[in-house]
Amino acid sequence: MEIFTQQLINGLVLGSIYALVALGYTMVYGILGLINFAHGDITMVGALVALTVVQALAAAGVPAPLVLVLAGGCAILVCSLLGLSIERVAYRPLRRAPRLAPLITAIGISILLQYTAALIWGKQYIALPKLLEPAAIDIAGAQLTTLQLAIFVLACGIMALLLWFIKASRMGRAMRATEQNPDVAGLMGVNVDTVIAFTFVVGSAIGAVAGLMVVLYYGIGHYFMGFMLGLKAFTAAVLGGIGNVGGAVLGGLLLGVIESMASGYIGDLTGGVLGSNYRDIFAFLVLVLVLVVKPSGLLGQSGGDRA
């Protein structure tokens, strides 16, 4: 039982990180119907920027809470600007092009981000200097650190904030209108370009927060770290119903728990035929299964053939 609880905690925390990244995918997809392949790499940039700031400040003896705020702030700033410029340069000119075009550009941008990061930060794994000493909470023999709890709360909190924002604010209404039909929204006085740019900025900022969390949690940063994370997060978004903010978080948490439970128990369940070596496959199997059985995802509306 103790082990089961621990696996559940492991899964929920991993899932919260997926959820944070998935929010970025789902927002852009909701508005543009575009898989922003580069989103995982924006998260990576956020993580590495945060790491650099922590490295610089922690050595200078700045108190930890201030370091965190500054690292998060810098990461959000850099990622927002990055998201804004990627949208402007790589996606906006192709808004009316065939569907394949922006997808291929997105892949190109993803590669560009990775290798530019490799040039700036090198290809070594970068370690996070000692910063926090999260306290451990004992839950029926299982360990939960305050940091893990914070990540989980943060994922749920950002989701709630976003849901409220989209429902209640003026910009949120414009976003919903653009999602329904950009042309009509434009006619109704919505500045579609601004709405889309805004969506990219918010999605990238959340990605930056996710990056900061990854760095704090694992204590490690690497130019290639965004790739697998992005893929898993995208799977999570699809699982929950892409375009749906609540679905992204639900999908993220579910995927995290599935992965954790699968690597923990599948070896015993299958008598050693399968093992933790298949962990990365589970995500893709879930993805294929969901797409085949219910392409709109768990919480998605059945308007799956929107384009």
Binding site: A90, A101, T105, I109, I111, L112, Q114, Y115, L119
Partner: peptide, 16 residues
């Protein structure tokens, strides 16, 4: 790295 950067750039520029 240069090779990868060129690949990425080629994909983006070709599309644009």
């Amino acid at each position: 790295d240069l090779r990868m950067l060129l690949f990425g750039l080629a994909l983006v520029l070709m599309m644009l």
